[in-house]
């Protein structure tokens, strides 16, 4: 679908009408419109923001109630705020080696995800294109992929460590291998669904393989590819935390493991919120890119 920018009602024509000669007449009719718009925007915001805020407040309240007993095994929100305030209020402090803000840690993790997922996207789209084009590649590879894609991220880690002998590349490989499957499978389906009409156009024009890939295949399969990428980025964010827990380093995943080992439960809770929010933003980013890039590709 083409998502065209909606024209804000009112603002444009109204300003033109405001000629100084007729100021007195227009003054009354001009004021209600922007106010009405502001109100509409306000209502829209309230409708989308208020309900989650209310639910969040209720949940935190409930949590506080449940965990405020002196013998509670988990920290209450108040305890979290007291003990981990520095982590919450300043994400980017840097006191040397392991004493740094969660923002820095998230950035390190994001960098790993960028390598692993970027690689998975490129390899996945290429492999998916080959598989989608060739019925025999599909028959041969699809069952294997369907089995491999169910292997959990952590299960790859020992093999990965053994193969690369280093924590950094192993973590990136785990992200790669976790997030590549949905990209491959969705791209293959997208390529298989390219209408014969487009293929005929390509044939009449005698497009070669490379031209066909860039000019027909990628745009035609883009909606499918982005579905795969969106699932993939989610999986890679799942994998980074798991991988960093074991490989160590500076990332957010290792931070959780470290906090657990030194019994800093409030810190873990803060880190969970960070991970959740970043994962949410990643998902929305890919969705946004998909909306921009696939404009018009789905409609015919």
């Amino acid at each position: 679908m083409s998502a065209l920018a909606p024209t804000p009602a009112g603002a444009g024509p109204d300003r033109k009408a405001a000629s100084p000669a007729r100021g007195t007449v227009i003054a009354l009719s001009r004021r209600p419109q922007p106010r009405f718009n502001l109100k509409r925007i306000g209502i829209g915001l309230a409708q989308s923001v208020l309900p989650p805020l209310v639910v969040l407040a209720l949940l935190v309240g409930l949590w506080q109630l449940l965990c405020s007993a002196p013998d509670a095994s988990l920290p209450s929100p108040a305890t979290v705020w007291e003990q981990s305030r520095d982590l919450i209020v300043s994400p980017f402090f840097d006191n040397g080696s392991q004493d740094i803000g969660l923002g820095w840690r998230v950035l390190v993790s994001l960098q790993r995800v960028a390598y692993g997922f970027g690689l998975a996207a490129i390899v996945g789209i290429l492999l998916g294109a080959v598989i989608g084009q060739s019925i025999w590649a599909m028959r041969g590879l699809d069952p294997i992929f369907q089995v491999l894609r169910t292997v959990p991220p952590l299960a790859w880690l020992p093999l990965s460590l053994a193969a690369f002998q280093q924590a950094g590349p192993s973590a990136i490989f785990v992200i790669f291998i976790t997030s590549i499957w949905p990209v491959i499978i969705n791209t293959a389906v997208g390529v298989r669904n390219i209408p014969q009409d487009y293929r005929n156009v390509a044939e009449v024009l005698r497009l070669n393989q490379v031209e066909f890939f860039f000019k027909i295949m990628l745009p035609a399969a883009a909606p499918y590819i982005f579905t795969g990428l969106r699932i993939g980025v989610g999986l890679s964010w799942l994998a980074i935390v798991a991988a960093e827990m074991l490989t160590g380093g500076v990332g957010i995943g290792f931070f959780i493991w470290d906090a657990w080992n030194s019994s800093r439960l409030p810190d873990i809770i803060v880190a969970l919120v960070y991970i959740g929010v970043v994962g949410f933003i990643l998902d929305k980013l890919v969705a946004f890119a998909a909306r921009i890039i696939t404009r018009g590709a789905a409609t015919n």
Partner: peptide, 15 residues
């Protein structure tokens, strides 16, 4: 391309 086709359903590339 020396035998160009006008397809029944136009087959324009929508993107």
């Amino acid at each position: 391309p020396e035998r160009a086709v006008v397809f029944q359903n136009h087959s324009l590339l929508p993107w």
